[in-house]
Amino acid sequence: MNNVSPIISFLMQQGVPLDTVILLLMLPVIVTLIAFFRQVVGIKAFGIYTPAIVTFAFLAVPQLRYGVIVFISVILVGMLMRFALKGLRILYLPRVAITLSIIAFSILALLSLGGYMQRTGLASVSIFPILIMITIVEKFVATQIEKGNKTAIILAVETLVISLVGYYLASWPALVRGIVAFPWMILITIPINIFLGKWDGLRLTEYMRFKDVLKNLK
């Protein structure tokens, strides 16, 4: 690091690890990105919390692909569990509890499978990103019940896409260097969000949805 802002060096002198500083400063960038995806592109995902937390989970695993594998397996098992538990007719929270437990077992199996196949990277994934991804299943199950399987899967894929974009943005070296050099730059996200919050144009996905109407308007 050749160019470190005095603010950052001050924080580091107080014993705050650089990684923590960068991640905290990256948070506004990522949530702004998610807001942009919602308001301008029209990709919904599971709200703002889930894609943000999944992005950080991705950032915390040693290799991105293991993060993606865990994410996909969690959603997959969550989906299968809905069918498995359908006949049981039980209430929402116990049902989610059972789903989460089975997912925990499946992840254990997945990790040991990784070890067996000499993929030690998988087993070395730290526990917090895994736990984070397991808990997002609640969002998934709730959506399944409320809006059906199809919507839930679409939203899960959207979450994955946003989190991946977020991951690449947050690990973009130029951006990281920029934040370290000029941390106050992050404040730009506030006017950006004010603009997004007042944006009343059509979303990109709505251009698709209304294409027949657009053709018909003169």
Partner: peptide
């Protein structure tokens, strides 16, 4: 023409 349509934002 898009200004004639009502989107979710608007």
């Amino acid at each position: 023409n898009a200004r004639k349509l009502l989107g979710l934002n608007a």
